[in-house]
């Protein structure tokens, strides 16, 4: 399997007043196509900085980052935007759906920034993405007509619609209760195992990590541990094992 993502000796420094804060102090790892990677770490571990760099929202101070064979270092702002548009699907903690806009239109959004995708194709692909997250029947609902879990599924559909090489999730279950989190994780696992999507999931919850195939632990800007998960828990089973009284 080929490397989707490869970072080498990645460093990121911020200037805060007169002090230089080192958020990342030389991190190297690579992610193969089809992996489900969780990046864990407590606050201040450099997790968010890592996410921003992996998501091409930020650039490293030094070190290389290859995404699908492209060295991100050499790209300018517009090229980065292009890269985000074509290769990355973001899922955020707060869903970040456009208010008063239907699920379908929310999902269509990334394609709006791709010239060459016509109106009809955009609609079809968005519908298809909504089918993948099992929300095709709610395509015309606006976010305030959807539950938190459903909103996050719309957000996942939005991340899928441009057929990215990697889905980048930032605490995607952070705003959800256990049951809904498991539903989302079950969806993620399905996308990973059945559709072969590469997923990078940033979280600080250990039980979320247990659903992934590999966990990278960051601590104080350094890679503390990189473990391959041999015993991947099934989110579907975990969901089934939840007490029924939890259902509301």
């Amino acid at each position: 399997m080929s490397d989707i993502l490869k970072i080498h000796d990645l460093r990121r420094e911020f200037k805060v007043g007169s002090q230089i804060v080192k958020a990342l102090k030389g991190v190297s790892f690579s992610v193969e196509s089809g992996e489900f990677l969780t990046i864990m770490g407590s606050s201040g571990s450099g997790k968010s900085t890592m996410l921003n760099i992996l998501g091409c929202l930020d650039k490293a101070t030094s070190g290389d980052y290859f995404l699908d064979g492209v060295n991100v270092r050499s790209l300018d702002k517009d090229a980065l935007a292009q890269l985000r548009n074509r290769k990355i699907g973001f899922v955020f903690q707060a869903y970040n759906l456009l208010p008063r806009t239907s699920a379908l239109e929310n999902v269509e959004l990334p394609l709006m920034y791709q010239s060459g995708v016509g109106h009809r194709e955009r609609r079809e692909r968005a519908m298809h993405a909504l089918e993948l997250v099992k929300l095709a029947d709610r395509f015309d609902h606006t976010p305030n007509q959807l539950s938190g879990g459903q909103q996050q599924r719309v957000a996942i559909a939005r991340a899928l619609v441009n057929e990215p090489v990697m889905i980048l999730a930032d605490e995607a279950t952070g705003n959800l209760d256990t049951r809904t989190s498991y539903e989302i994780m079950s969806l993620m696992q399905e996308l990973n195992q059945e559709k072969g999507k590469t997923i990078v999931f940033v979280t600080h919850e250990p039980d979320i990590a247990s659903f992934s195939s590999r966990t990278v632990m960051l601590r104080d800007g350094l890679l503390q541990r990189d473990t391959r998960n041999t015993d991947i828990k099934s989110a579907k089973e975990a969901l089934a094992a939840l007490p029924v009284t939890d259902d509301y």
Binding site: A81, Q82, R84, N85, F92, N96, Y113, N162
Partner: peptide
């Protein structure tokens, strides 16, 4: 602002 951030994260360039 958040909408703008989102649009940028899904590939909108500054000029878009």
């Amino acid at each position: 602002t958040r909408e703008i951030g989102l649009r940028m994260s899904i590939g909108a360039r500054g000029k878009d």
